[in-house]
Amino acid sequence: MMTNEEITNFELEVLELLKNVMDPEIEVNIVDLGLIYELKYDGDKTIDIDLTFSTPSCPLGDTIISGVKETIKKKYPDFTTNVEVVFDPPWNTEMVSEDGRRMLGM
């Protein structure tokens, strides 16, 4: 049984891993863009992710979801990743991290 601290550390590790998933148009990863709203690990083999898109009509929706799932699957092949797309609260530019802003040239 994992401790709460171990679970949190693992979640941070997965979040770091998801920095490999890029928005190919903006060329910033989805974590620094602030698209990941919530990431929960059950301590066993399931990861639940709430994520959003920069706009509801984002044409990259599918690509981002499969990018998240495949990236996790590549490192943790026997894990299940559930992705929920949420638009509440709507994404805004305040959600972009400092690193993300640097990547965008700010």
Partner: peptide, 10 residues
């Protein structure tokens, strides 16, 4: 999923 996805693209 509420939003649009690339499956809608022709």
């Amino acid at each position: 999923m509420n939003g649009l996805n690339s499956n809608n693209a022709p």
